[in-house]
Design a protein around this nucleic acid. Structure first.
Lengths: 187, 187
DNA sequence: TGACAAGCGGAATCCAGGTTCCGTAACGTC
DNA sequence: GACGTTACGGAACCTGGATTCCGCTTGTCA
């Protein structure tokens, strides 16, 4: 799904959209185990067509993770504009949680963010890290967050919160988890 | 591997031990994806032999999880004897973390503890819950831990910490995570 | 509207892993 | 030390799911 030279034929473009939409829906609902045939069927397309656009399942997943992650990085950027230093951090965490809340596959992807290298995310990942650092430092400067908090802690803690939503029954309990964490982050 | 009436033949007992040992080692090292053939080979036994004892891979995994979980529950019981109320809680969390630290498959099992019903663990699970409740309540009574902490929070939080060790590179970082959590639990 | 490249569908193929089968071999008891 | 069990080994089998192939269809452009 990199930039192809010649534009797609009209019907192909239409199908591509449907495939992506179906893939988003099924991966979100069933996790990475969602099957290629099901995705094609859901999109009203043959498997052959699906494979014409994405040579492999991994390519498809990667594309979606990429999409989703940009959204994720965007959230951080938006939160930087929040006035309250602590509020900025807390809101970012909450919104990041919400962004992942209804996408089972993406939850897994986020948890693995630190060990698996998703292709084409490098830049957004760096950008995200920069923003998070700044938000944390600002909160520390304001004396609202413990001084020893590091950027790496952010990923770690969010990994834990994501695990909660992924592995535990209720979809809402993670907010409670977040509250506990936030209490631990205060100065 | 429930209670079989007639005792195993000498060689069979020996092989069973080797199989269990190999299974422990490989599942710990590679996670649930460890293959039956590899386990048999590692134990110096044919697959047929492995399947004679455990009719299915799931049965084997379940047996190991059971073993491990009893150990887990035992740790909680031991920690109840610690004098300091807060110390008891903190130590239990640390020791529970350490118990899971080097077993990839068991990490996953623990994370799923709340949604998947591992067969034959019910009792130990209930016992564990009871102990944890008591430890938490004692710490609360002593005013050392926030009043709104609930038993369910324990599983949630430990799930998060376990996720850290499972999904993030360094094996040690989870201790840091635990510290952050503990800070959040204080009264 | 004819030619052709770009697309399409979906049966067939591949493959990794778990599971079964059965001819042999090793206990343990008389 | 002979016999009936109980075990053993490992090749063959099965299955679920990803991926490939290819004859047929449909945009697009002259």
């Amino acid at each position: 799904m990199t930039t192809d030279i010649r534009p797609l034929r009209a019907d192909a473009r239409r199908n591509l959209e449907r495939i992506l939409a179906s893939a988003r829906a099924l991966f979100a609902e069933r996790g990475p185990g969602a099957q290629m045939e099901d995705i094609a069927a859901h999109a009203g397309v043959g498997i052959g067509t699906l494979y014409r656009r994405f040579p492999t399942k991994e390519a498809l997943v990667t594309e979606l993770v990429r999409e989703r992650f940009q959204e994720f990085a965007g959230i951080a950027a938006e939160c930087e504009d929040i006035e309250g230093p602590y509020d900025a951090l807390a809101t970012m965490m909450r919104r990041h949680g919400e962004a992942v809340e209804h996408d089972i596959a993406f939850q897994l992807a986020m948890m693995q963010l630190n060990e698996f290298e998703w292709q084409g995310i490098e830049d957004d990942k760096a950008a995200l890290n920069a923003v998070v650092s700044r938000i944390i430092e600002r909160a520390q400067a304001a004396g609202e967050v413990r001084d020893d908090l590091k950027v790496e802690d952010y990923g770690m803690v969010m990994c834990g919160i994501t695990a909660t939503m992924h592995f535990m029954s209720g979809t809402h309990e993670w907010r409670r988890h977040l509250d506990l964490i936030l209490a631990g982050l205060r100065a």
